[in-house]
Design a protein around this nucleic acid. Structure first.
Lengths: 221, 221
DNA sequence: GTCTATACCGAGATAGAC
DNA sequence: GTCTATCTCGGTATAGAC
């Protein structure tokens, strides 16, 4: 049983949000085992009792925060895809801008990626359904959502591939994943210039692999 | 300071090894904060006091085990590189075999990668010099050591690139890193068939990017 | 002198009672 | 919101045994 919302009438969801945000910060900063509910209550400016009022125990609190975080990042990525990949004017430029924004999130939202690292650390101890939920809501699903955009681009002959999902995974691999691994998922932030280099060169490699005309002027469409 | 070897008399420090191995298992299984010295002592079949005889405290024990593990994996990778990349007979075959062996290590040495995940979880809390030590001894250094092999292959006109280190990173990105990320660093092992698919296709992509003559009449920039 | 075994201390944690 | 019961952990101390 998950945390219950206190009351539909006058119950303030403010407290719940405060707890959720504080929990995300503390879990990300300290890791699961080290994080104490006292500190979370303190940072949320809430009595510890109130936490137990909304979440049954520490584990439920963590899992709830984890799924919320996954949803948030998935939504953020969706917005980025809409902004950069819906209308393509210059494929290389648009892909680069998209991947760059996506990669910059690693350094711009350190508390979120700290939570992601904490989740990774707990993956083997997570209940199976929760893990599946996280994988369905989190980064892996964000990866999948890229495929339709690439497919549309391919429909306009700007890219060529057999399998849109594999192409999407390739793009992620060549850009985002490289940033993630080299920065230890944001734990050791990379200089902006390095991120730019990784992304631009990654996109170039992606286009060499998947652009219909590898080299010269792309005058089609 | 670090743990000291008990006696120089020549007797094998079996106790120390037992502690080290048990610590690696427990730290990998439980994470740093959850791992208790009582359990480590128990699994090592050693009195808890003996641990403090070899290592000053929990933190030193963890760091020592981490560096040992990093060295072990670096050495294992070095052996793989010597086996597969010293003499090239068929570039695609040899690269594929190398990357496959490398990737299989993820599923074949689960306890080691569990420790790697624990290290990742602690990265932000690690003292800077220790982090640098781990990066110098661990996977990042293994990546770097790939570059000279690729350079030799390029010297024989089997590959073409400007920067051997970047090419090495590309190969890692297209193969190993993909496996690592999708398996959560081994926490959720991938089926062997999936690993094979990732590796073979990754190597193919690498060769499309860096082989002087792809397969057909194609001229590169 | 090292290892074993056990008991012990203080700090800090969860969870719940008041 | 405070207060407390109970637990676990890191680390130490104190025994004796090889």
């Amino acid at each position: 049983m998950s945390g219950r919302v206190p009351a539909a009438s006058g119950g303030l969801p403010d407290k719940r949000r405060a707890i959720s945000e504080a929990a995300r910060r503390v879990f990300g900063r300290e890791g699961y085992a080290r994080a104490s509910l006292d500190v979370i209550a303190d940072e949320a400016r809430v009595a510890k009792r109130t936490i137990y009022n909304h979440y049954t125990d520490k584990e439920h609190l963590f899992l709830s925060v984890a799924v919320e975080g996954a949803d948030a990042v998935t939504e953020a990525v969706r917005v980025l895809m809409e902004r950069h990949l819906r209308k393509i004017v210059d494929l290389e430029e648009d892909l680069t801008a998209f991947c760059l924004d996506r990669a910059r999130a690693v350094t711009e939202f350190p508390e979120h990626f700290a939570l992601v690292r904490t989740i990774h650390a707990e993956v083997t101890r997570l209940p199976a359904p929760v893990l599946e939920t996280w994988m369905a809501h989190g980064p892996p699903s964000a990866h999948q959502r890229l495929a339709p955009y690439l497919q549309k681009i391919a429909d306009r002959q700007l890219l060529r591939f057999d399998d849109a999902e594999k192409a999407a995974n390739r793009l992620n691999t060549l850009t985002m994943n490289d940033v993630l691994i080299r920065s230890f998922y944001g734990a050791v932030p990379l200089p902006e210039s390095v991120v730019e280099e990784i992304i631009t060169e990654g996109v170039q490699a992606f286009l060499r692999l998947y652009a219909p005309l590898p080299d010269t002027h792309d005058e089609q469409v």
